[in-house]
Design a protein around this nucleic acid. Sequence first.
RNA 1: CGGGGUGUAGCGCAGUUGGCAGCGCACCGCGUUUGGGACGCGGGGGUCGGCGGUUCAAGUCCGCCCACCCCGACCA
Length: 477
Amino acid sequence: MSNEKLPSRAENYSEWYNQVIQRAELADYAPVRGCMVVRPYGWSLWENIQQALDSRFKATGHVNAAFPLFIPMSFLEKEKEHVEGFSPELAVVTIGGGEKLEEPLVVRPTSETIIGYMYSKWIKSYRDLPLLINQWGNVVRWEMRTRLFLRTLEFYWQEGHTAHATAKEAEEETLRMLDIYTRFAVEDAAVPVIPGRKSNSEKFAGAVHSYSIEAMMGDTKALQAGTSHLLGQNFAKAFNIQYLDMNNELQYCWTTSWGVSTRFIGAIIMTHGDDQGLILPPRLAPIQVVIVPIYKNDEERARVMPVVDKIRAALGSIRVKVDDRSELTPGFKFNDWEMRGVPLRLEIGPKDVEKGSVMAARRDVPGREGKSFLPQENIASSVGALLDTIQSSLYEKARAFRDSHITDVTNYEALTTAVQDGWAHAWWCGSADCENRVKEETKATTRCIPMQQPGGTGKCAVCGRDANEKVYFARAY
RNA sequence: CGGGGUGUAGCGCAGUUGGCAGCGCACCGCGUUUGGGACGCGGGGGUCGGCGGUUCAAGUCCGCCCACCCCGACCA
């Protein structure tokens, strides 16, 4: 751990991001270019994300399973758009056990194909549907430029794959999962997101429609934080996923897939972090409360520590860490835990022992303003309430920031100005030409066509033709 | 893959005309400290990215290679 201050976000946002991750010990660079090591603190955060999502999946009838890492090359080639989309970024194994392989094996970039193959074996009848399986795992995509969490060659995620009897059910599933992602982002991560549909040029290779949740980072760039795809019958036809309906007629299934990855950790970092470091939402924070004991000598220590132990015990199921490292000063510890984003710090010293109090310092409110004395009585409920307050004020702060950086625009000039430091919300005619013009001239792309539409019609902010949907344009990660 | 840059201790760097490989932080030990990033003293740690060449002598000069970072074309 370095003693030096972080670069400020205003000064160099990407350097701030890289350093926060390393100093907070979320992740480190691996010896292979573009790969990362997720360190215990980062993995613990990921485990909490997994648990929050997994419980929502289970509550909607999904079950977990595990499919292989290796996929025969020929599988990828069965769906035309899919292979075209992914072939530039595949890692391929050509040698196994010292022998050249008969058929190269692809390290999965995503598992639609191999799961489709298995589904064709498992699904015979309408009675087998819907089939609702999720997998937690890792995938590999050989990216050109990489960033910790945001884009690495290998990343961890969950991918849900479902098969349905009708288009309507598949559509409902796609939107149900989009809604689950939205609620996870808002309720668990305190990350405000806009759910919407992707434009044709931004959709998943092989999908009929892709949906995403889009979040605004602290530098106003957009981050796709989760996706849900309606695959139609594309993969069902490529892999013969068929069932007999009630009339004994053979039908193709309708399938979906949806995923959230370790990229979401990047979203949390860049949504909540400040110039002191990370700020983690209480619901997901590996450590919700850190207790720093304060004492000058052994005599004071002997009086303070029993109270520290008592408070820790009283906090019950709240995730608490007592920082009893004797070689460091309290001041150092304050900065250290602020860097790591622990939402609430309790200081307990001789004065608190006398007064029956503890000093509480909110991570989201810097300095004296965020400090208050709490009585030792009923500490669990007052700390619990404070954590809830922090959770909701993090969300409100992020939402206010985002909303103040979204501009409704009606013409091209206003659009190009808006995307310099925020998002543009505009009518769009739906043509790829308009998207391309904006991308070439401003680097901004369409992020999503939000589910929430104003209704009515308007004029495309790029070309002026009739438009019946509004879209967000933004520079994106 | 194109353009630019950097490789010397865990991290950040210095290293003159080619002449004993150093500094700060971190780390280890002892002591004093401790309510917002403590201090003193004493220590440990190196294939100078790799290979080859020039030379009495190479971190330093020459050649080739490799890795990483930044900027562009692709992306959860």
